[in-house]
Nucleic acid binder design. Structure first.
Lengths: 174, 174
DNA sequence: TCAAACCTATCTATCAGTAGATAGATTTGA
DNA sequence: TCAAATCTATCTACTGATAGATAGGTTTGA
């Protein structure tokens, strides 16, 4: 573990739990136990639960942005492919929901600062898809694509069938 | 209110709260207060929280099935339109998430019986779309359509922009 | 140089409030 | 009369949050 700073360990534990059970589904004590410190020490790094969740959403967004890179110089269709890969990895590697997908579904029960951070995540993806070079003929609306990916995650996980993610994600045709 | 049975009043209150804050975002005390009884009386009707949530998901599914009707005799494209209307009403009339969309996102943090009831909801919609007469040329995969609707609900609500639901839902083109 | 002052990160202990759940008495209404 | 429904009262466990103490590291300044 290379003696990672406690703050990062807390965020890692919180991300796992939040992506499993949502904002109300984990506690400071859970995280403290995960990391091996006391819950009061978690409060030292994040005074309130809202502070923690906002930091969580901002880190999540930052990582996505770094992984996606700048869209303008991508090959046609590559932007959409990179966004898809983001969500596919959430399903197949993390075996978890998208943090902001889950938080977004709980939006009206979140501290406003957290809801704002979640909205910024969605804006980032929509803006990225909008600016990335389009691939030929059929170009899906950014909002439609993002919605499909979030929903596909929910469907595939609930029905316990990863192939449903591909079915929901495959280029459409009849 | 016509002196509705307490059981139904409890389910109504629970549905509102669950569709706002998720499974871990409401309590027996919340519901008791909403209905105007004691929390122990809520336990009389639903021994455990899991029992309550399962009943909630099953009632939600039953109502959707009743509203959708039998798909075989519908006009082409009407099945998809009815499913879309279901989700549009959740956004514009209820101003809430789809119960099973939110529960589905929390699947790994739910009692198994609740997760099973949520899966049944998704199977119902997928089966309905599969059996409904298709409209002409471009027919979206049922899983893709359902995923898009659940995701569109999340997007439109988080970004506080109902038009995003339409953007994510409109027939695709480029 | 070296001690006073400060900073960081953690601890112990505690708080008021709430969680889901239960036992047993009481009310209600057909 | 009797069962359904609700109540009072309570339990144990946990919630987010705070106060105050402590140990160790770093900075400051005479």
């Amino acid at each position: 573990m290379l003696d990672q700073p406690a703050r990062d360990q807390i965020l890692d534990a919180a991300e796992k739990r939040a992506r499993t059970a949502g904002y109300h589904g984990f506690s400071f004590r859970d995280l403290a136990e995960d990391v091996g410190i006391k819950s009061s020490s978690v409060h030292y790094h994040f005074p309130t639960k809202g502070d923690l969740a906002e930091a969580l959403a901002r880190r999540y967004t930052k990582r996505a942005a770094e992984r996606l890179g700048e869209p303008h110089s991508l090959a046609p269709g590559e932007g959409a492919a990179r966004v898809s890969a983001l969500f596919r990895d959430a399903l197949l590697i993390d075996d978890r929901m998208c943090l902001c997908g889950l938080f977004g579904a709980e939006r009206d029960a979140l501290p406003p600062s957290v809801a704002a951070a979640v909205a910024d995540f969605f804006r980032l993806i929509l803006d990225y898809l909008d600016r990335a070079p389009k691939a030929g003929e059929r170009n899906e609306e950014p909002a439609a694509m993002l919605a499909r990916l979030e929903g596909a995650l929910i469907l595939a996980r609930t029905l316990n069938d990863p192939s449903l993610f591909e079915a929901a994600t495959a280029t459409q045709a009849a």
